[in-house]
Design a protein around this nucleic acid. Structure first.
Lengths: 200, 200
DNA sequence: TCCATTTCTTAGCTTTTGTTAACGAATCCG
DNA sequence: CGGATTCGTTAACAAAAGCTAAGAAATGGA
């Protein structure tokens, strides 16, 4: 089964006839390490599924500093929702962390499918709802937990791919802190662990 | 025009026949100050439009501390998306800040309308997309700006209702800081303003 | 493999925030 | 109207985070 079709079918069932027009619009693309799929300040009218590799979503601030806010791995769908929906330039970039293989398609094609096939409209609704729950949870975590608690939450979550494969400076950014601060938190936790061991 | 119908028609057009079944399911309800519309830990299968008054969305942490993360005013739609979609207890409460008048309806009714009228499915998609853009922007603000910058962004935004009508401790929570810290930030900015005035 | 680049840690110092507490002002509601 | 509650500010101290810099470790790419 095609990975994008599998992704969509986590939400709705597609007949071959419904799948065909989307399949016909897919274009394969390779990214080198550090190459952009989406570039901040430019239109980003395409979505993509990551077939292999990994990408990060990053904002470049007016002072030139970068902040990484999200990661994408195999079988993730990515793109600038904001640019696709509003037609405005994207406010962030999406950049490959390693050589990455993509399957891309224009958002305009999806919009056409919304009109032509109710099943795509339903998929679109459920996808947006699913993404909304994820973003809400992330927002709550930022507002409710301390940086140290956020790191611990990440440690005990099922997002092990982030911890295993991503440079720590980007994880720090994702947690809303500096790399130096994350390094200190890690040292603190490790000291606590060792104290707990010898104490027991 | 009915305020809920107006709200929906910001996204899609409704015929009288399409509007009727939703209108028939609406129930008016009054909340006293501090009364819950949604209670953390309980199912929240209803949505509501605020007709008049104001509410806040709050999480109560395991240690008993409260964190306010959102506000709702006239003509806002509110509810626990998370509880409605998953059927699980809500992870937050929604509480009236002042006497508030609501129009409520079961999410199950909306789900029925998704099946019966494509126009509602489209509304559902566009609503979720719109909410997602808002949450994404909020998340970016938290990760990109300092507390002081976030307060200034709020000052210069069009969310004047928040600043005018909401106790400062809740605004602090919304910004991800303590009330004491917000008070200091305000004092700092005021001192800067005065220095700028006398210096010019 | 090997060199250049990137990445992580640690340290010292500054700034900001959190915490607790106290006081006065504002607000609410009977 | 008036007492009780809630709210905002300020202060003093402790804890944490930011910033800069430097050296060691890991990684990437030719």
């Amino acid at each position: 089964m095609h990975p994008l079709r599998t992704y969509i079918q986590r939400f709705v069932s597609l007949t071959d006839a419904e799948w065909a027009p989307l399949a016909a619009g897919l274009v394969s693309r390779q990214l080198r390490r550090k190459e952009d799929f989406v570039t901040q300040g430019r239109l980003a009218p395409e979505l993509a599924m990551v077939v292999s590799g990994a990408c990060r979503l990053l904002y470049t601030r007016p002072d030139g500093e970068e902040r990484t806010t999200y990661f994408f791995f195999d079988n993730h769908l990515m793109g600038s929702y904001q640019s696709c929906l509003t037609g405005q330039p994207s406010q962030f970039s999406i950049q490959a962390l390693a050589p990455t293989e993509l399957l891309t398609f224009p958002y305009a094609l999806l919009r056409q499918l919304f009109d032509q096939h109710p099943v795509y409209e339903r998929f679109g609704r459920q996808l947006a709802e699913y993404l909304l729950l994820g973003t809400d949870a992330r927002l709550a975590e930022l507002l409710l937990l301390s940086p140290e608690q956020r790191y611990q939450a990440l440690l005990h979550s099922h997002k092990t791919k982030i911890l295993e494969r991503i440079p720590q400076q980007y994880i720090a950014s994702y947690l809303g802190i500096t790399p130096v601060s994350l390094s200190r938190i890690r040292a603190r936790l490790q000291a606590d662990d060792e104290a707990a061991l010898s104490g027991t």
